[in-house]
Design a protein around this nucleic acid. Sequence first.
RNA 1: GCGGCUCUGGUGAAGUGGUUAACACGUCGGAUUGUGGCUCCGAUAUGCGUGGGUUCGAUUCCCACGAGUCGCCCCA
Length: 417
Amino acid sequence: MLTNAPRGTKDILPEQIHQWLWLENKIRELCALYGYEEIRTPIFEHTELFQRGIGEGTDVVDKEMYTFTDRGNRSITLRPENTASAVRAYLQNKLYANSKLVKLFYIGSMFRYDRPQAGRLREFHQFGVEALGEKNPAVDAEIILLAWELLHGLGLDDLKLKINTVGCPACRPIYRKKLKEYFSANIDDLCDDCKRRLDKNPMRILDCKTDAAKEIMEDAPNIESCLCDDCREHFNSVKKFLTASGIDYTVDSRLVRGLDYYTKTAFEIQYAPLGAQSAVAGGGRYDGLISEIGGDDTPAVGFAAGLERILLALELQKLIPETNKKITAFIVVGGADAESYAFKLMTDLRRQKISAAMDFGKKSMKAQMKQAAKSGAKFALIIGDDEVNNSTVTVKNMETSAQEVISLTEVPDRILL
RNA sequence: GCGGCUCUGGUGAAGUGGUUAACACGUCGGAUUGUGGCUCCGAUAUGCGUGGGUUCGAUUCCCACGAGUCGCCCCA
């Protein structure tokens, strides 16, 4: 249907735009505070970037990408997330040449072909942050802090910060093997989905939410026992930094990220009232991604947050401020001769940064007054033949109903008071 | 991709197998002479998501599709 936007997309209407701008401003302020600079990457990239970056076998790559062939026969994909693009831009533009640590953030549309529901759209908006080039766990903590402070600073209550470590190429395979052995032994208790996951990604089984699965999880091997010294130390440091900055977190050894590139630190901030879409922000370290894409071995950390979800949460708690869209002056015209006089007045006011409007529908003065009242204007400037002949304007204060006739030149000063 | 529920005007909605589809809000207009917010009056769905079917007749019954929503999956 011509008058319907595609499934899973949404118009952001004039009555909603102020909350988006407001949120985006908060984000930009906070990022400036933390020393992150904005980057805007293309909305589409070569499909291969995401296949390599996010990883084949992940749901995002296997069944959620908007992929098409362009007229030059290239395979193009609408970005399902922004980390791979940011890394690509980092490498292509040699941002590493400026400093060892490069701190970036982005705000923009992402695309995932998924079944829409509240808080989950096919075109949605993410804010995200990437710190490239530093392996110090303090950066992990800084990233987590930034995400936390944003959401918390917005006024959201009952946020939950969960952290975990998912190991690195040195120790994760050992853990995976252990898990596989354990779950294979208990295969009868696994749900169908998990049986499938056993080979592909046994760590995801930990995330299973079916009741039957809960018992087996209790005794499942913990990654703690498999961690290499480096990963263990790293995780301890992250926790130390977080504790030092006084934010509450829980270690959830079942927290697993769905994208292949994560190493070591993984975290998620949840807002439970959002139901199935409670994950408002999530991210972690991805030391392997940059080399995977073709750069030198470079450590990095980042996270992304869903703006729709944040807005939904803010709405639930009524934390979005109203904006004042009222105008200062509404010009009411009586008689055709007055129209150009009024039009010029309106233009002059606007040139002096005084918001002004008038009716273009040639309505009765009564109707125009109604409109003036509805517009919330502080003043109605009434112009008829008398005013035109004497170079005056009748100024009516809409709140007090007091009105007086003043000369045209006095108008700006009068209504600025 | 899977399952449940829902789908009446700009909005919230009532309603029925059969003449003009309540009510409220909103919007627009009017209540004489150049003026609002209150009040009063009037106008606002040839149409009940779309397409089929059943029926003498369907907005009301059935089917398909679509969209929304909730859950699963996944993720932000």
